[in-house]
Design a protein around this nucleic acid. Sequence first.
DNA 1: TCCTGTTGCGCAAACGTTAGCACATTTTTC
DNA 2: GAAAAATGTGCTAACGTTTGCGCAACAGGA
Lengths: 361, 361
Amino acid sequence: MCASDCKPITLKHIADLAGVSVSTVSRSLNGTSRISEATRQRIRSMAEELGFEFNASARSLITKQVGTIGVVLPPSYEEFGVNLYFNTLFNAIRAILERNDYDLIVAFPANRFTGQDNLRRLVTRRKVDGLIVMSPRLEPELLEFVRGSGMPFVFSHYPPPEGAEAELDFIYPDNELGGYLAARHLASLGRRRTFCLTSDADYELEYRLRLQGARRALAESGLSIGAEDILYGDMSIESGYRAVMNFRRSLGGYDSLLAFDDLMAIGALQAFAELGIAVPGEVSVVGYDDCELSGAMRPALSSVHQPREEMSLVTCERLMGLIEARRQGLERPPARRSVLRPELVVRESCGARSRGAGPRA
Amino acid sequence: MCASDCKPITLKHIADLAGVSVSTVSRSLNGTSRISEATRQRIRSMAEELGFEFNASARSLITKQVGTIGVVLPPSYEEFGVNLYFNTLFNAIRAILERNDYDLIVAFPANRFTGQDNLRRLVTRRKVDGLIVMSPRLEPELLEFVRGSGMPFVFSHYPPPEGAEAELDFIYPDNELGGYLAARHLASLGRRRTFCLTSDADYELEYRLRLQGARRALAESGLSIGAEDILYGDMSIESGYRAVMNFRRSLGGYDSLLAFDDLMAIGALQAFAELGIAVPGEVSVVGYDDCELSGAMRPALSSVHQPREEMSLVTCERLMGLIEARRQGLERPPARRSVLRPELVVRESCGARSRGAGPRA
DNA sequence: TCCTGTTGCGCAAACGTTAGCACATTTTTC
DNA sequence: GAAAAATGTGCTAACGTTTGCGCAACAGGA
């Protein structure tokens, strides 16, 4: 190698060493255009030996591609519960993109404290080739900006808000179906009276859909969920615990709980334990998201599993498709909405035998 | 704005519009060199209005600065427990760097599955200005490579392995002290017989130091921890649970548990609950890391709080110092090791009254 | 009036790469 | 054996910045 102040190797170095022009080296390495097999081999092995890599800045100046994707995390990502869920998604996406030689930069739609958003910067400075938006929504003005910039982007995880334009790409799980599956299972266990633990946060669309699905399932068995059967929390363990504790005098008539969030479900489990209410003996509990924690609880929590792997895959493919189209100067492919199927994972809190069973076990 | 296929605004556009040269625009915007106050103002407001931002690639080609920092996460980051801890650190660091106009790219020392590491790529392609290494160690060969590349980098969180070269920068919490504080507290509560739950993973240095500190504290009270008092797990809730369950016949003589990891501590709490052993009545429990989950457990878990805020701050300042020095072509500042103080957070599992008390409550 | 200094700005080279074009050489085709 | 086509390579102009140098204009001092 070389001393610590050494200049990085450039195409020119290789060209001089091989006695050819810079273009020839470039073409040999990129495999573009006609080059004799002999020189190609020779140049490649020289580059290999020298540990040459293209200077990303120089290259992108010409190709307009930087090899980096921005992932826009939800503004509340600093919060425990949110990052618990999104980390898995983030990791899955990262793995896929890495295979395609993309690096990942994290972005936020707006920093609550500084008010500054690095998202806009990333776009205008051309530091990314595309965006995966995992934020429930972008400010209309910001959305308009991103769109006007021509930067490819897709929404992942959050369902499109009502009235969202049809020309946007969304990839998200079927929340209504998830709620349906959970509630249907409870009904099939013979549970007749269910109460719900949901969120009053501003992401509520997801939660409303889950409730809607649950109602549809119960209706099939002649059951229902009334306004008085619904408790609210803020998606934290604490809030689930408190909600159930506050509700304890009215708990008598219920034989099941449907929590639209795993953390709140876990809080509820704690409350039941403290109140001496047996799970699943007296009350069956189902959560939502199937976060990593759930299988490790006592009793292990049944939960609606989000199709994160599939979601990651579809998201990346979609985005890469948009990027490729743009690179080739083609028309932007028509927007699509991909709705993925969640799955119910039954564990002890519903009366299943073994601990931590399910996809991830 | 402009149509979606519009070219981004460049210095040239502004120059043409203002009737000056490109250099003048550049200098007005950067504030470098002499420019009349009048034109400076005029150019600035024009740029503002047009929403101009420098093209990062073009700029970095000349300045050799890309405005991006690579964060090297531990290879086991995909695992729940690990990301639970590092996320907080990552977020804190991100917030600091964002204020300094840096973006963050995630890197891995080596992908276990593909064998490929994007870290090397990031360095040779010059996609980052510096690295924050949160991995317990780098392969000697990789370390040599990074060092030889002249890329500024610092280690954060993990203590330097024995024999680590002194010319490397490390910022990490005092594990020995953490173990000491936890054990001393148990002794001060009148607990006379403690067993430990530690890890047998290859990060063990941290864990060995924690044990060492615990032993020192107990020795001050004439107590000790023998080999038979030590259980091993893999830093998961499950493993903590199983370790204690397997140990249940021998549990009689003990009045306290020191777990060198919060997740294992939580698993132990579950086991105690199942075995009908009262916490903190019969056994006091202290964990380590003070992860977000701990305060929410029942009983709330006492834990050694890692100085993550301070660590983030020191890490970023150190790295930015190195980058700045390099930019100015100065000598690399001498390496430093910053050892930070952890703090014990006492909650219910040790007999504290309120739930979720502590720094984060 | 001349000299010296300062101020404000433009020119042009550089950064490392890609790609269109031209040209020389080889191969194919009739 | 000549024309046409294919092949391999170099030249050169980009891409959007920064920056050293030079030059004109102007000010102040003698």
